[in-house]
């Protein structure tokens, strides 16, 4: 890789200041995408600001919703995950497993064990790889991405292939969302890379809103699927998915599968998501 200057940030403010002082700096979290990209000489940041050691950016909190009427305590818990929390930490968190098991399952299927030990949720979200898993989850859960400058809704955050609403110098600090009443993730990995060829995250909030987000398949990155949302809003079941005609328009074709195949997989993975 090209030469670069490495900095270890002590906290988010320090990271922001290091970043602003750099000519073409980049935040380094787990580095599981950034480092390979630099090795391939596809990225050449002048400076790397490592935030993986910042304790304040790590950890998971689950805040139970106050009991209101008939709602069960576990429903609707507010979940906050620090940006530098690794996939393995999310996958293995006992509180999270009770409040929102689908997110643990999703994290436990990202990459491989060694990648999960190092890769972080913040890094994955900031990179917005069109085949990454977290963007689908965050969009379907209506999550909020908090940065050192502001809060951004997932709908506004993911803007296209490897593109986000983040400004220069803006650093993700945490991700938060409300645990859904129902939620599932169906992932069909690409045979080679094991990234999602199609990943469908379906969630029904405690208020009954249904959101379905698809990753891996869209020509323009992660997207919400209106047809599936409408069908599942009236009937949260695999049968409801069967009635939806998933169009291949706007879907990706590559050597692993064409748009028609991906359209088929969206239906199959949506069924898997709601049957989970």
């Amino acid at each position: 890789m090209y030469t670069t200057k490495y900095h270890k940030a002590s906290d988010a403010a320090n990271a922001a200041s290091l970043l602003s002082g750099a000519q073409d700096g980049k935040i380094l979290a787990g580095g599981q995408t950034l480092v390979p990209t630099m090795k391939q000489r596809l990225a050449a940041p002048s400076d790397l600001v490592d935030i993986s050691g910042i304790d304040a950016l790590r950890g998971i909190t689950v805040t139970a919703r106050k009991k209101l009427g008939v709602l069960k305590a576990k429903d609707g818990a507010t979940i906050t995950i620090g940006a530098a929390t690794t996939h393995a930490e999310v996958a293995g968190n006992a509180d999270l497993a009770k409040a929102c098991p689908v997110i643990c399952g999703l994290a436990g299927e990202i990459g491989d064990p060694a990648v999960r030990h190092r890769g972080t949720i913040g890094g994955s979200v900031a990179n917005n790889d069109p085949a990454a898993d977290y963007p689908a989850a965050l969009m379907a859960l209506g999550a909020t991405i908090t940065t050192n400058q502001r809060s951004i809704s997932a709908d506004d955050f993911f803007t296209g292939l490897f593109a986000t609403a983040l400004n220069d110098g803006e650093i993700i600090t945490e991700i938060s969302f409300q645990a859904p009443a129902e939620g599932g993730y169906g992932k069909f990995p690409s045979p080679a890379s094991r990234y999602a060829m199609v990943g469908v995250f379906a969630a029904k909030s405690i208020d009954g809103d249904v959101r379905v987000a698809v990753t891996g398949a869209g020509d323009d990155g992660v997207f919400r699927h209106a047809g599936l949302e409408a069908a599942l809003a009236s009937n949260w079941s695999a049968d409801a998915v069967s009635g939806v005609d998933v169009s291949a328009d706007g879907l990706m074709s590559d050597i692993h599968g064409n748009a028609a195949y991906r359209a088929n997989l969206i239906g199959v993975m949506a069924k898997k998501a709601v049957s989970a």
């Binding site: 045979p191 080679a192 890379s193 590559d254 050597i255 692993h256």
Partner: peptide
């Protein structure tokens, strides 16, 4: 080559 790395050339893995 569209398949010049393990991202696109499917090497058999244990679970295959």
């Amino acid at each position: 080559q569209l398949s010049a790395s393990y991202m696109d050339y499917t090497m058999p893995r244990a679970d295959d």
